[in-house]
Amino acid sequence: MMNGYRAYLPILPVAATYALLLGIGVVSPDHWQLIAQLAFYCALGQAFNLFMGMTGYVDFGYVAFLGIGTYGMAVSIYTLSDKGLGIGVVLIGLVLAAIFSLGLSLAVGAVALRLRGAYFAIATIGVNEGFRYLLEGARIWNGADGIIFSRHLRQGVGRQTAMALSTWWADILVFGVAFLAAVLTLVYMRNKVGYALLALREDEDAAKVMGINVTRYKIIAFITSAILAGLLGASAWALKLTYVYPSDVFAIHYTVEAIIIVLLGGAGTLLGPIFGALTYGAAKYFLAIVLPGFQLLIFAPVIIAIIVLFPDGTVGLLKKRLRDTPLGKFII
């Protein structure tokens, strides 16, 4: 490993931030919902950044992976709750969520990742809608009626546990996904994967000439990012809400939020998505009080302003400034 443990020091600010958030939530239960929301945005940003930030490709259909992960958990609880597996249905649900999102990312990636730039965007923009209409049209998993499984969850694990799962453990899992995404991002950055992605983001043709199998590394990033999204959907949506409707979980505005978060903080950085998530989450929370319904109207121009004025994002700028200072070791 590069310079041993020192290369992994930037995980400390990540861990500290999440610990602080958790601490605030525990001390002040009134704010738990806000904290949980912030954790969701952190996880969403970290997971989305792992592909978009590291490859420079934007997947407009990203929310499809959250959606299908939600279904993974839902299907597990809905069909297995009477098999006496207890809490096992939740674990199986997480595994199913990962498998489903892996499958979908392989199917989409097989087409989209052969394409460059604009064509990639065109191939992905319909994935969420397309998948939603497949479920509704072929009446897969109850079609448009969705799956309501709160009763099944209570049956499977008992009333008390079910309650604890959706009010507490679901959010803890979201923290887990957020942290896992950050760890994976850093591990990739410090290993060959990260350098391959850096090279292909800068100049895909030159990267190929350097011996980089660009498709392979794009697939690695795409799949990792998709599985994290699947796990996020399974915990933040399925486990927390105990129902799933296709029209909710494939809604494109979550992709919009992911883009905002990553760009606010700085694409391709480790700390950027966290900064972006906290800024966006807090702003959305207060806007919901002051100007309800206006958050996207305010943030969409912000995206344009960031792209035009400072494409590196906040953390990107900080990183450049602090490169040669002792703090620089922590900020990437």
């Binding site: 060959k192 350098y195 391959a196 850096l198 030159a206 990267a207 350097m210």
Partner: peptide
């Protein structure tokens, strides 16, 4: 290349290391 195409945002060291990592 005729017009050099280094990976601009990577450092000089990283650029050269990328050649070593993925080359022959």
């Amino acid at each position: 290349f005729q017009i050099p195409r280094p990976f601009n945002s990577a450092t000089v060291r990283e650029n050269i290391a990328i050649g070593g990592m993925f080359g022959a």
